[in-house]
Design a protein around this nucleic acid. Structure first.
Lengths: 154, 154
DNA sequence: TATTGTTATACTCTATAACTATA
DNA sequence: TATAGTTATAGAGTATAACAATA
């Protein structure tokens, strides 16, 4: 894989290793793209999820993104302080917080849109449209297998 | 994706997001498997690479694994202190360090082997053998595109 | 002067335990 | 008593800049 060309051995046969390396490469590029708006991958995913679910509870976002509730707190604080997210005490359950985008938050996502599309195009142009569809399908299956009873051996 | 079933919106169409989530799930399982030997993903990948390249220079390992040289130092220190890795001053170039596994290091890798194989089987049993081969091929292409001149837009 | 590796440091992301307020 | 969110804290992984020793 590298210029010096040392033997990658069994490593290149481990799906987990290949996933980690590919993700690392893709995230590094994403960070460059979203750097204009100071948005890292995780905060960005929160905004995108809230955009599709205005008024969603903070804990629902955490669960959907596999973020621990304790880790949501500073993330949401940051997004609220930056004026991208609105956080309101729940009307039915006053323990909960309901999240929604502000106008500024919607603007930022809209401004990111073209850059993100170009980023995906740039990184995955080595894959055909069919391959990309297959990749999405495979990754979704791997992710979803966590939500089911696939812990037999643990 | 979650039990509450909120709308994942555009997120599920982003390859980068799907990669990140799948990797997170796979790494979490890997950590359970290798916990017996207190080996996290990155140190494990170093051992595996050194196994295939006895006497390799530290910097070559760093480059092959996309680890920054500065971050290699504590990782190699830890593996040497635990007696898994041998670090020797280079014979031709005394600035460099040559790495090799100790007998204990080889033992640990051998003991991990079956567990890792079961881990890959467990996580990717949702994919057929053909799909896994296609996935590997696709991921390698995405990773390799970083080593070439694919920075046109940056 | 360039290269190999090191030190110091900071940030993102993830994880756990103990806590408060509300249900 | 259980649930939603919080606080405090720790650790892995990654990033950069300045440095020492050797080439």
């Amino acid at each position: 894989m590298a210029g010096t060309g040392i033997d990658t051995g069994h490593l290149e046969e481990l799906t987990g290793y290949l996933l980690r390396r590919a993700t690392s490469r893709v995230m590094a590029d994403f960070v460059q793209v979203a750097a204009n708006h100071d948005l890292r991958p995780v905060p960005f995913s929160i905004l995108l999820l809230v955009e599709s679910n205005p008024g969603v509870r903070q804990g629902q976002v955490a669960e959907a993104l596999a973020i621990k509730p304790a880790n949501m707190v500073p993330l949401v604080n940051m997004l609220v302080e930056r004026g991208l997210l609105r956080r309101r005490v729940g009307v039915e359950d006053r323990r909960s917080f309901e999240l929604a985008l502000t106008a500024a938050g919607r603007n930022v996502l809209q401004q990111c849109h073209a850059g993100i599309a170009a980023h995906e195009q740039r990184l995955f142009s080595v894959l055909s449209a069919t391959e990309r569809a297959r990749l999405h399908d495979m990754l979704r299956r791997v992710i979803q297998s966590a939500d089911n009873g696939d812990q037999q051996d643990l």
